[in-house]
Design a protein around this nucleic acid. Structure first.
Lengths: 335, 335
DNA sequence: CTGTTAGCGCATTCAT
DNA sequence: ATGAATGCGCTAACAG
């Protein structure tokens, strides 16, 4: 493992000052052609690589952004892909934090450690509570929130609305003639789930239907709970003819439950999910679901953070990206 | 955004030297109880956070490891999860690089940029060629290879064998009475695919069966190509009764192709995959496949790199983790 | 127990 | 067009 090469070593070899070498390597004008070429040659020969730390210490910029995720689940991965895309274009690197386990302490650690290391932080924690956000608000590091649905915050936010598409999905089922539509929620803490449930209720009420609370079951965004919740729904005396789940995993669980009970999808039960994770199109029948633009969220948030770091203005309200209903094979008209 | 607090600022407030503050904050003994407490209080009040860059510049250690992945596909994600687990335990952070697009140049950039920023690099690029590995061998940064199956290298490597489990999976199909077993490869460049194919051939030969080259189709690890390759296989005059795909995506594509042709799985065709990505257990019927211990690979590689950074010895040969065949619903005895 | 000195590698400022 | 001095924030090594 050869020792790292420094600017001054190159300077020595070339008989110039370190400053000149620095100027050459950063294309900072005012260097004679001859010197420039010599320096470049020697630098390449010696395998010079700039020390990111030293540069960062001096300039206050490291060209690294941190991305904070709850875990590496499919949704977070899509966000991360978008972030990666935006960052690599801007020649930034991505520091990845997952905070699944010990929530609170971990989050403080993140903001602390990233101090100095990251130029900014992207936070994609849909379940973040007010307390979490306060930590970030107090942080010295510029922060952009992704998909935050909790209490108001002055932090710049990029999100996709949950209420409207949930209402639309429900209206789509109503349009297919369904009248008893079950709903499987996510965990209680999630602002996302809450908004989606609100959209469901709004659609029913708008259609002049009372919301039968027996048709609303508590899930937790997992396939297993989705299975259980759907099993309960389908065991009801007056069975729902359609189930809208707060996310795709729950919906897939619901599909399994229906199959388990000998019900056909979509003939006997229609199922609608939310998110459009890759799995949604890979199950059979492929799942009708709301496509949430996670990749675009990541990309947009990264770009926003970069522009803020460039001193550009912070948008007044949250940046809101559109979702769309993707109709696939798991839904049909009520028979 | 309050300005960052420095050691000397705390020192000033406390009427002590920066050195003492540093000693307190790093538990580097020899500080009176009184001073210690005062410093700690003030530091907390002012919201002190150590500057990782400065510390790294001084100590040569940043507590950051880089993970290089081809993309954020399910397999890479599992590896990343393992790495995260190991690193967070050791209080290291993870810098994530994906190199999908412009392979060569990108790789040089990675080793270059990470110079100084990462204390070491974990490389999980199953398709890495000899040329790539040479770049890493020349790198000044300690490197551990994950799942590298190419030409020999002196770099420490953590991998899961492909040959033996592929042979076992094939033997399992033979044991079920299958005699015409199709094989769908990954892309040619992949050492992984090559080893898996070798295992397939070995099992057939060992059973005294000639390998019918019509039964070996070229895929590229994608579901789409898996579909196409399987369609070809199933259109053969003498149709195979089982298909072994070099990875799960191809296998799922093969299942779709079979269904498309009106064939039942597993009654008419058995399908076996490789990897055991989450999708494998979510499709219907759930896929029989070889479980590759990706999480453990990531975890093991991270631990190995950490121990190397600690000055411990590098294992002589590659560290080899075991895979196992997971029998699910996509395989049955030939009827 | 505590303080001083010095320097990690780079880039900004001001000379030359 | 080039160079010298200086300091980013921290900590080894030594001195008091």
């Amino acid at each position: 493992m050869p020792a790292p090469v420094t600017l001054s070593e190159i300077a020595a070899r070339c008989g110039v000052s370190a400053m000149t070498v620095s100027n050459v390597l950063n294309n900072r004008g005012k260097v004679s052609q001859a010197t420039r070429e010599q320096v470049l040659t020697v630098a390449r020969q010696m395998g010079y690589v700039p020390n990111v730390l030293a540069r960062g210490l001096k300039s206050g910029r490291t060209q690294v952004l941190g991305l904070v995720l709850p875990a590496l689940d499919p949704v977070s991965v899509e966000i991360a892909q978008g972030v990666q895309a935006a960052l690599s274009e801007a020649r930034y690197d991505m520091l990845l934090y997952t905070t699944s386990a010990d929530a609170g302490r971990e989050r403080e650690r993140v903001t602390a450690l990233s101090q100095g290391l990251s130029d900014g932080l992207l936070i994609a924690m849909p379940r973040a509570a007010a307390a979490d956000v306060q930590i970030f608000e107090r942080s010295r590091v510029p922060v952009v929130l992704i998909n935050y649905n909790g209490p108001d915050t002055r932090l710049p936010t990029v999100l996709a609305d949950n209420f409207v598409p949930a209402r639309q999905a429900t209206e789509y089922l109503l349009g297919l003639g369904h009248r008893r539509i079950g709903f499987i929620t996510g965990d209680a803490g999630s602002g996302q789930s809450h908004e989606r449930l609100r959209g469901y209720r709004a659609a029913l009420e708008h259609a002049g239907l009372a919301v039968d609370e027996h048709l609303v079951r508590t899930g937790d965004f997992t396939q297993v709970r989705g299975f259980a919740a759907a099993a309960e729904l389908l065991a009801l005396p007056e069975r729902p003819t359609a189930i809208f789940a707060a996310n795709d995993f729950s919906a897939v669980g619901a599909m399994e439950a229906a199959r388990h009970l000998g019900l056909r999808i979509p003939e006997d039960v229609s199922v609608v999910g939310f998110d459009d994770i890759p799995l949604a199109s890979q199950v059979f029948p492929p799942l009708t679901t709301v496509r949430h633009p996670f990749r675009a969220l990541g990309e947009g948030a990264a770009q926003l953070l970069l522009s803020i770091l460039d001193g550009k203005a912070v948008p007044a309200g949250p940046v809101n990206l559109a979702s769309e209903l993707v109709v696939r094979g798991s839904t049909a008209a009520r028979t």
